[in-house]
Design a protein around this nucleic acid. Structure first.
Lengths: 204, 204, 204, 204
DNA sequence: GATGAATGAGCGTTCATTCAT
DNA sequence: GATGAATGAACGCTCATTCAT
């Protein structure tokens, strides 16, 4: 059908813009990026962008939001593909690290602005980000709780432990992005899991 | 002497402006804050701000920079005031948490990490921030290395472990700032240390 | 072609702005003219001016520079259209006077000489102005030297004589602009030539 | 008397300020000079300048005006000290050149802004400058008329001839200021007089 | 009287958004 | 639909002038 084709094309163009926007927003702060710049990079006229996105702000929040949804969905799918609790945790770390490694541009924005506080009008994005973050923690929490129930994990407050795990991952990611060493980020997986599972104290 | 008094007054006003700026910058992003707003909030005329700070950018970077120096210095002083390695680590966590608790506005800006990607002229701030961050990690690293030598800690890459510890603290801080529960942040100290030292796995 | 039409229109608008700017700059000093004023007078929005000219300074220097080029080119073309030395000199005076008469606004700025000492960024305009001036004198010098060689003119330092001639013209122009008498400026031509050629002393 | 001493001191300070102002205004345009700069250079506090001059504008116009009065008065005194018409003219040229040579800073301002067109509020200065200029021309005119009556000079419109003479002087001065050659400006006296009296045409 | 910190109107410039083509 | 020139509100910053000390 004609309309379908239209829509398919529309979505392709839209995605192309989002992709360029991602690159550009990753290099400078929101306010240092101009709409003209994005239009130019994505090969559209300025006015045309406004057919895809209501405003610069919408473009930005959409880009962040959609990509983030993808990330969370992808990670959860990975995690859900294994059954064992410890394996799930390992997959979680792995999936996180891989996403970061494959989406450095995007992560530079997002990790930079941990839950962010942009324009007063962007409150809804901020809220979504926080919600998504807490949803994700809740997802991790669920796994941890199973682990605790199974006697695999110590009986600690699962929410806080989930948060700790996510931040351990972030720790490795920050290092990797701030001080590129050539080594794959994924290589940090075992280290993260080791610390997370065993802590740093020597037990005789 | 007259000049002394002058200088004292100058510094008081300067500090007052920085304090207001901190509040304001914590609520919105750099670009959404106007100089007029800061001037107004701190009870000065627009032009007067420019006697204390060369530009909006200088005001911002100074605020971040000075406060951060204070934070790092304070934390290290606390840590240095005890001798035992494990006590040092405990103090580190405690001092971090207390600073965050007492400087929520500031930390909202700083943890937000927006500092990463502002104007190209702010590169020097970004560099300082990263330097300071790595210096701090190096400081923690030193403590950890002693602990490893003493046989108190497992023999893990100290830099990465230091980074992990800092992010564990950040994990608790994010939770606390994002979901205020009324509970003091400091209450998370033992939990952080527990995870950090022992990990989450149950060892029989 | 479409692009051609675009460019033609662009140049028309650009010229219209320059024309208005000329009028406005002729009435007050550079710093007393606002961009808003020029925009308003030429029927554009403030921002639109910036599509034609990088900055207020560029607008100003462009206006001066282009018009001056036109003036010098026009005068030389006139002069070159006759062969005889004395006729060339007469044409030079005539062309100068006519340009001034037809471009009073512009000359008010230019003769005012304010261009000398504006912003340090305008050094290049000042240098161009001085260069152009000396080039023009050199052009006149060339004619005078021929006249001297031909035995038509006294053997005097040609550069200084050229400068004298230009200032004699300027003398008449100043009078005419400062004390408008209704008489055409061109009417002064013979007087200027008489003084220039014969001096004021009575020779018996 | 006390009051006299006061006034003497006041005038000295005032003169000192005017002198510094002259230097500073000669280097940049009116708007690029700040009151603080003049205050600083003359060793007074900003506020103190306002006891001597109502405003920046008054300071500027006063400086121009007083110095110009001095110039005209000095030149006329010189000219009046000789009786013969031709000698008077020679003295006029000489005195002009000497003033310019001894007051290059000032002349850079004044010659730059031939009759000027500064702020709309400076109309009165502009008017005074024009008046003074025409008065001076009138003075020269008087001499020339005597010369004509005496049969020494050709019977030309005296006003225009006066203006021509002044511009001939200006011609030499411009050259000298724009292209410093090390030679004294005064050296141009004979050349100016030669052109003025005899013109450039060779008469057999 | 002397001071210079404080003032704030007013500047040049940018850029998200619109709309005539 | 697609375009990009036109718009103008809003910004950071300057500096002549004032006035409390």
């Amino acid at each position: 059908m004609r309309a379908e084709r239209k829509e398919r094309e529309f979505n392709l163009r839209r995605a192309a813009i989002l992709q360029e926007a991602e690159k550009i927003f990753s290099a400078k702060s929101y306010h240092d990026v101009t709409v003209a710049e994005i239009a130019n990079a994505s090969g559209f006229a300025i006015g045309s962008l406004y057919q895809f996105f209501e405003s610069k702000e919408h473009l930005y929040t959409t880009m962040i939001s959609e990509k983030l949804d993808l990330m969370y969905a992808g990670i959860r799918a990975e995690v859900n593909s294994v059954k064992d609790v410890l394996a799930k945790i390992a997959r979680l770390v792995e999936a996180h690290l891989m996403f970061i490694e494959n989406n450095t541009d995007f992560c530079r924005i997002f990790l930079r602005g941990e839950n962010d506080a942009l324009s007063e009008m962007m409150t809804s994005l901020r809220e979504k980000l926080i919600d998504d973050y807490f949803n994700h923690i809740a997802f991790v929490e669920g796994i941890l709780k199973t682990g605790i129930k199974n006697g695999l994990l110590r009986s600690l407050p699962a929410h806080a432990v989930g948060s700790a795990l996510i931040h351990l991952i972030r720790s490795a990611a920050s290092e990797w992005m701030l001080r590129p060493s050539g080594e794959a980020l994924l290589a940090k997986k075992d280290f993260i899991l080791d610390i997370f599972f065993n802590g740093v104290k020597k037990h005789d």
